[in-house]
């Protein structure tokens, strides 16, 4: 039991930190521009594909550095020539624009890279077991994923709280008009934040690609979960996003690890149902079976009972 507990925690941590890399960019973008970027996970996918192509010729490490840069530049271009144009038409138009962009990027990826799974492999240097516990290996690459995520979190935290740019960004989150009145170029900051946010998603893609497989559906699988995190954490709250990421990561991992189901719950109350009952499917549900949809349940509940999210202050 202990081994399951430890590994469930580790797995939850890996997933949670990975999700945070996406959620941090998304929530930054949202706080500044009020745009919930539907295409955010698509930039994550682009990161993985660019890194895959680069790794074919120059190896994994080149991909790790350059793929996020390419993604970031693409993101900035999207902001400059797409979003800014749509901005005049209001938030719904922006949301719809990013929705269309997500759709287009998925098709474009299939156009350029084909539809089958890509053989994007982790570097040989990290192909060993970091440690073995109860007969199960924890690969060095997963350790590396944790390290990178934590590194980025610290870096981001440092930039946002200590640097001049970070202070301007923080100010722009809460008082965009005042910042503009002070003479800062807010559109440029927007473009920069969008670029950095998408680049962060790119990094996540680069390091997740080898483990979570690189295929055209990878954005869809992750996309809606990232929204869920940002919303649960509280729109615009970086700390909230961090907590929600870990929460979702651990929740899913523990739900899968558990073996309880509806029946166990009903047993507690001494209720039992015949197996041919009309709602037998409901009584037979197990927690692992529904683990991947738990975040959506949580999302709906949070939005009903606390629309600002866990840490959010701003109501839209």
């Amino acid at each position: 039991m202990l081994d399951v507990l430890i590994f469930a925690t580790l797995n939850g941590l890996v997933t949670g930190l990975l999700l945070f890399m996406l959620a941090s960019g998304l929530t930054l973008i949202f706080s500044m521009m009020g745009v919930l970027n539907f295409a955010h996970a698509s930039f994550y996918m682009l990161g993985a594909y660019f890194a895959y192509s680069l790794s074919l010729y120059f190896g994994f490490w080149t991909g790790l550095i350059f793929a996020p840069l390419i993604v970031g530049v693409l993101g900035a271009l999207v902001e400059r020539y797409g979003l800014r144009r749509v901005h005049q038409a209001g938030h719904v138009a922006e949301l719809v624009f990013t929705f269309g962009l997500a759709f287009l990027i998925e098709e474009a990826v299939q156009f350029f890279w084909g539809r089958d799974t890509k053989s994007y492999q982790s570097p040989d240097v990290l192909n060993f077991a970091l440690f073995t516990l109860f007969g199960q290996e924890f690969s060095a690459y997963r350790g590396f994923m944790i390290a990178i995520s934590v590194g980025i979190f610290i870096g981001l935290y440092y930039v946002l709280t200590r640097s001049r740019v970070g202070i301007i960004i923080q100010a722009a989150i809460t008082h965009p008009n005042t910042v503009a009145n002070l003479g800062h170029n807010v559109p440029l900051i927007f473009m920069g934040v969008f670029g950095v946010g998408t680049a962060l998603a790119g990094v996540a893609g680069v390091i997740a690609g080898p483990v979570l497989t690189t295929f055209p559906g990878m954005a869809t699988v992750l996309g809606s979960i990232v929204f869920v995190i940002v919303v649960i954490g509280g729109l615009g709250s970086l700390a909230g996003a961090f907590i929600a990421s870990l929460l979702i990561g651990l929740l899913q991992s523990f739900a899968i690890a558990s073996d309880v189901g509806m029946e166990d719950l009903l047993d507690l109350f001494g209720i039992s149902f015949p197996y041919d009952h009309a709602l037998a499917d409901l009584w037979g549900l197990t927690l692992p079976q529904v683990a991947p949809i738990l975040p959506f349940l949580l999302l709906v509940l949070v939005l009903i009972f606390r629309p600002t999210g866990l840490m959010g202050k701003r109501e839209e």
């Binding site: 919930l36 809606s224 919303v231 037998a280 349940l297 999302l299 709906v300 629309p307």
Partner: peptide, 25 residues
């Protein structure tokens, strides 16, 4: 309205789509 409504609709859509595979009857 707005983003909150959009997100609830997304969450409910995903929940119902997932349940539709679970409740076979």
């Amino acid at each position: 309205a707005g983003t909150v409504f959009a997100m609830i609709s997304l969450g409910i859509g995903e929940l119902i789509a997932a349940s539709s595979l679970i409740f076979v009857d």
